[in-house]
Design a protein around this nucleic acid. Structure first.
Length: 386
DNA sequence: AACTGGCTCAACCGCGTTTCA
DNA sequence: TTGAAACGCGGTTGAGCCAGT
């Protein structure tokens, strides 16, 4: 289990990539796919380690990477997901199409963290720094403390999903075209990671492959909009996930995952309830009831509701939910916090630094409403486990 | 013009996980 | 079953840029 020795080799170049190196790497991958990263540098005529090549490709050269400023919506999504998932950048990147985990991580560290800090919110815990401010709103404090629980559950959920994806890959591979099959099996089954889909050797154009890869799958659904540059679940992307969900309904494998998840969520629910959050979250006494509740709650989204009616929801639902929660005026909590979404930690946030506690409190309140709404929406039934 | 300090982000490092012989 | 190799993730670094003095 030792460290990968690839970067220890003497004579390998480090540091910034030159345009010539980029060109070589691009040309090679366009023609052959990356295959084994380890073997790639030699084959491509690069004096780099495979790891460096992979990083350069995933973070910079890939054709589907969106560069430039983050939109406000993206910022909010990052903040909300960070509150739920912590520093799981690849998982966060899953929900931000065309952004790399590295980019998100950098953006968080250089912009968002500071912004939250200025707002008086601890960027690590997402709890208000000044507890006194919230002392009159015990519910929010409890919400804050329970958030870490939620994050743990979400982690468990993601892991369960990853298992599901892993299984689905194996399953779908039997019915997929050989090239895609190669692509799916060839990727790592790691929960949060997989390399970019391998390109069929006959693929004439890289862009073409990226744009059409999904269509060759048995899952014709194009969820390529959800593709995330680096990511894990995203790359395998929604299609495999959805496939697995569809295929596993009623199957024993799915049942296993479901049971696991059910136990976790039941456990979580009790902790959650003990924490006084039962009013903020549509937990119900039975999974069926929960599903129905969520389907009803999500009535505004046909897709989501439909998915819930079948007991599962794809990643897409979660992402859309995040994004929609920023733009529409759904009010899922009694306070209707979603209505104020757009200003709490976006552009307007910097205007709240002057120590006005009322304003700060309002900011925090809105902020937490957002997160709680998010949790409402991305709650258990969101998971394929259900 | 020169210096300084802060900021940004590409790239590296080290570790944990997964794969495979 | 085991251990080495390969891979991917998150934390960290440092070169380059820019604004302020």
């Amino acid at each position: 289990m030792g460290r990968s020795p690839c970067c220890d080799k003497v004579g390998l170049k480090k540091g910034p990539w030159t345009p010539e190196e980029d060109q070589k790497l691009l040309a090679y991958i366009e023609e052959h796919g990356h295959g084994s990263w380890r073997a790639l540098p030699a084959k491509a005529g690069l004096e780099r380690c495979g790891k460096s090549c992979r990083l350069r490709w995933t973070n910079y050269l890939r054709p589907d990477i969106k560069r430039g400023k983050f939109s406000m919506q993206e910022e909010q999504t990052i903040i909300q997901l960070h509150a739920l998932l912590g520093n799981r950048w690849s998982a966060i990147a899953t929900h931000l199409p065309k952004r790399t985990d590295n980019e998100i991580k950098n953006y968080w560290n250089t912009h968002l963290k500071k912004r939250l800090d200025k707002m008086g919110i601890d960027p690590v815990t997402h709890k208000p720094k000044n507890d006194a401010i919230l002392s009159t709103t015990e519910g929010h404090s409890k919400s804050a403390s329970n958030l870490s629980h939620m994050a743990q559950w979400e982690s468990a959920r993601l892991e369960a999903e990853a298992r599901l994806v892993r299984e689905s890959k194996l399953r779908t591979s039997h019915s997929s075209s050989p090239s895609l099959q190669h692509s799916l099996i060839g990727t790592s089954a790691s929960s949060s990671s997989s390399s970019a889909p391998l390109l069929p050797s006959s693929t004439p154009s890289l862009d073409h492959a990226w744009n059409n890869g999904c269509s060759t799958s048995t899952v014709a659904t194009r969820v390529s909009d959800l593709e995330s540059p680096t990511s894990t679940l995203s790359e395998n992307n929604a299609p495999p996930i959805m496939t697995s969900v569809i295929e596993f309904v009623g199957s024993s494998e799915r049942g296993t995952v479901k049971e696991e998840g059910e136990r976790e969520w039941n456990k979580g629910f009790h902790e959650y309830k003990d924490g006084g959050m039962e009013n903020s979250m549509p937990f119900t006494s039975s999974l069926h009831e929960l599903t129905v509740t969520m389907a009803t709650t999500w009535g505004s989204s046909t897709t989501s509701a439909h998915a819930h009616a079948h007991g599962h929801v794809s990643e897409e639902g979660f992402t859309n939910l995040l994004l929609n929660s920023n733009s529409d005026h759904r009010s899922l909590s009694p306070e209707g916090g979603a209505e104020s979404n757009n200003n709490c930690h976006g552009n307007g946030s910097d205007g709240h630094n002057n120590g006005n506690h009322n304003e700060l409190y309002e900011d925090n309140k809105i902020y937490w409403n957002n997160i709680l709404n998010l949790m409402n929406c991305s709650s258990p039934s969101d998971s394929p486990m259900f």
